[in-house]
Design a protein around this nucleic acid. Sequence first.
RNA 1: GGAGCCAUCGCCAAGCGGUAAGGCCGCAGCCUGCAAAGCUGCUAUCCCCGGUUCAAAUCCGGGUGGCUCCUCCA
Length: 466
Amino acid sequence: MYIYDSVQKKKVLFEPIREKEASIYVCGPTVYDDAHLGHARSALSFDLLARTLRQLDYKVTMAKNFTDIDDKIIKKVKESGRSMREITEYYIDRYQAEMDALGICRSDIEPKATESLDAIEGMIAKLIEGGFAYQIASGDVYFATSQDAQYGSLSHRVGDDEEAQSRIDHVGEKRNPKDFALWKACGEGDEICFDTHLGSGRPGWHIECSAMIEKHFCGTDSYSIDIHGGGADLLFPHHENEAAQSRCATGHELAKYWMHNGFVQIDGEKMSKSLGNSFFLKDALASYDGEILRYYLISVHYRNDFNFNEEDLLALKKRLDKLYRLKKRILPATASLPSVDFRKGLLDAMADDLNISVALSVVDEMVAQSNEKLDANPKDKALKKEILANIELIDALLGFGAKDPFEYFQLGVEPELKLQIEKLIEMRTGAKKEKDFAAADTLREELIRLGVAIMDFPEGTAWEKI
RNA sequence: GGAGCCAUCGCCAAGCGGUAAGGCCGCAGCCUGCAAAGCUGCUAUCCCCGGUUCAAAUCCGGGUGGCUCCUCCA
C-alpha cells in the first residue's frame, strides 16, 4: 500500500509499526452544529483508507474523536439554555446517523474530550514537568513552542514572524506568539469548568487528540500510531501542535504518517461557516440518497479539492445506475468468488494512495464486460455468481452496490404510485400484445409524465424512477 | 506580507519521464413495433513561454489564472 504522507510530501510505501496492523486516528468534528459536506468528505476519505487496508488483510484500528468541549459549544449553551451535554449528544447522534447514511463504517474507538480529561490532565502535567509548558498567573497553561526544536517540521513552517494561533486566547501573557493553550482556567462567568489538579478550567483544543491517542493506542518506541488524518486545514496549526505536544510528552513521534484530505468547495470556494456557504449533509440527504452522495463524494481523489455541484452529482448517479442495472440482471443468485483480475485491478488502484478514479474505471469495465457476457449467455449461473461476488467486493471495498436493485431504482416511490405504475405497465403490455402500438405509446408517455422510465425485456417490462 | 496546492476532451476526472484511463454529454451501428436499457465504434497532445533529456502532461525556471493555510474550521 502506498500513501501520500503530508510531511514527506510524497507518496510512500506504508510500512506499519506492527506487522499487518494499522492504527489510524482521524480528527472528528466539534459537535456544536450539523455536519456539512466537508465533514462527510473527510470521513469518507478515511473510511476508504480503512476499508482498503482491511481488504489488504491489515488489522485496522480506527479512532475518530468528538470534540465536545469548545468555546463554540459553550456559546451555544449560553444562547440556547440547553445543557452542554444535551447539545453535544444531539449533534453526535445526528453526525452518526448521517455518516451511517453515507455507509461510513463506525470507528473502533470514538473518544470524547469530556471522557478523556484524565489523559489530558496527565499529559499536561508531564509537559509542565518536562519544562515544555508553563502556567501563567490566570491559571492558563501554555505549551512553550520554543522548547520543541522540531516545532514547525510537520507543516514546514519556520520563522517566528507569524501571528499567535492559540484557540482560546484572552490574555497576552504568552512567552511566544506561537505558544498555544493547553488548559484554560475558569474565569469570571465561565460556567463550563472541570476540576483537576491544574485548577478549575477546560482543556485547549489541540491537547485532546494527543492525549486520546496516548490513552487508546499502545504505540512503540518510535511512534504512537501509524496514520493520523484530517482535513488539510488542520495541518497547521492543529496537527503541528499535536505533534509537538506528543513529541515532548512521550519522547517519540505521534504518527508515522500524516494524511490530509482536500476541501469541498461550493462555486470554487472553500465551504466554511464564515463564508456562509455551508452545505449541510442533512440537506443533501434530504434530496439524495446516501449511497449516491457517497458515490459522488468519493469520485474525486481525496487529496484534490472537490467542487460540489448538483449537475455533476446527477452525472455520477448515471454511472452508479449502470452497476445496479447489471445487478438487476443477475438476481436471484448467490455469490461465489470475485474474478481474480477484477479483484486485483480494484485493490491495486486503491492500494495506490486510494486511486479512486482508476478503481471506478475498473468497476465500469467490469460492468460492461459482464453485460456483454450476459448478452451472450443469459443463463450462465456461474457467471452470475461471479458477478454478484464482484459487486459484493465493491461494496466491501468502496461501500456501494449493496442495495436491492429494484429498491434502488424505486427509491422514494409511494406504494399507491407504484400500484398505478404497475397497472399502466400491465395495460401497455396488453396493448402491445394486441399490436395497438399507438395505445402502448400513449401509456408509455403517461408513465414518463409520472417520472418513470420503462424498458422492455424478453422477460417482461422493467421500470425505473427517473 | 509569508507558505503551499492546482491548471488535462463541452463537463467530471486518472496520469508520478517512455509516447493521453474511465464516466457524463454527443454522433453512428446492433438490438427494439418504436423507444429505453445494454453492447460496439468515433471525439484531446495536456494554460502560456523557455530549459533539461534519446524521450516531458509528467522534471527545472519564468509567466498567467484559480484555490488554500498563516484566525475557528474537515
